[in-house]
Design a protein around this nucleic acid. Sequence first.
DNA 1: GTGCTCATGTAAGGCGTTACATGATTAT
DNA 2: ATAATCATGTAACGCCTTACATGAGCAC
Lengths: 219, 219
Amino acid sequence: MRCVTNEAAEETNGRTLPATSWAVLGLLSFGEELSGYDLKKWSDWSLRFFYWSPSFSQIYSELKRLEKAGYASSRMVAQETGTRDKRVYRITDEGMTAVRRWAREAPVDPPVLKHGPMLRLWLGHLLEPEQMREVLVQHQEFAEKMRRRAVADADGAREEASWAYPTLTLKWAERYYASERDLAAAMLDDIAELESARGAAPAAEPAPAPAPGKPGKRP
Amino acid sequence: MRCVTNEAAEETNGRTLPATSWAVLGLLSFGEELSGYDLKKWSDWSLRFFYWSPSFSQIYSELKRLEKAGYASSRMVAQETGTRDKRVYRITDEGMTAVRRWAREAPVDPPVLKHGPMLRLWLGHLLEPEQMREVLVQHQEFAEKMRRRAVADADGAREEASWAYPTLTLKWAERYYASERDLAAAMLDDIAELESARGAAPAAEPAPAPAPGKPGKRP
DNA sequence: GTGCTCATGTAAGGCGTTACATGATTAT
DNA sequence: ATAATCATGTAACGCCTTACATGAGCAC
């Protein structure tokens, strides 16, 4: 029964929040008073290019966590126009200090990527050329759609100084998705080349792969 | 008490496995008989460029799941050279059918990206230029390291036909990480430009951001 | 009055990780 | 001897999602 209490973690605090918590606190660090609903919509809107957006329910629980940690405070506001009361959150000075510290001092971790389309192409021996092309074309369309959204968002971006960095990341996103699109195109070419190299044989069912040897391990 | 049993899910089977299960089954689809340990090492080695590699314990539990689903079978093998017995897994015909079907027919989902470095740069108003550069430089080094690994792996790749697609994804990875590296360099330039545009003011602490208005919502 | 969106949650559970336990073999 | 590596797990827990519950205004 070794049940590690997380009091130790709570004492050291700060550094130990999950990434998603920092993302939410980061959203609040622009200084506005926002509701969970607002936060979700804004994060869908602004982080989607480079950071998987958490669900509503997670946003709400992260906000509770942040409030308990003293990094945010909340109050109920009655709506002028009759609509129901809402709870809005504002970052505290401690929250500001903590998130600034995190952004400045946390180790630079590699991005987390789960590239489903690429996983399927890696399993190309299970597919026919036409199906590979289909996966790539759809991914290409997705990438181009994202790129265009990044461009559109950047066009409507604010001019204020504190919005310069979100704008910079939109520029990054535009290039990132352009690259993703071009990489798909390049792979389509590679596949075409591979197919033509295979000769005239249409290879509708290219015969069960002759069990390859051990995966080429290297130390 | 609405407790949805997952019998329904188990009946329809097939399509419903989590992505990580398909990844493990995909590793087995190359036809080799592999232990959990082998699988973990091989997945670290081969999928790392485009798909987050699961932990040992998850590999073991996925293998149990696959065996229960009838997609893999296992047996114990005694080692000639004295080392301890191990359990090795082999894909079944049903497993082969299922994974082929998944690879061919599953919807093409967008890749999942959690780009920590970009999240921090998005919060540029919390950082000083030097710290932004530091984050970008480290990310750039990571990307270049990955690119070189992809090149090295491709050089040592097998020639057999069924390995053509893994080799193709290595080529993709090489370009992907080259792009990631170049995107970081471009952003370093953008930041330098932004800084020089800010004028001679060193802006060591650029004054608390003058609360920007509401996040520019658009429908 | 019916159905939609706004708004805020709770409940249940799946996914996935870290830490730990264990024991055998191999290297020093 | 001892430390490291191989190998296979279990326990506990944290993250995160889906589905559900609820209720108030608003459009038709």
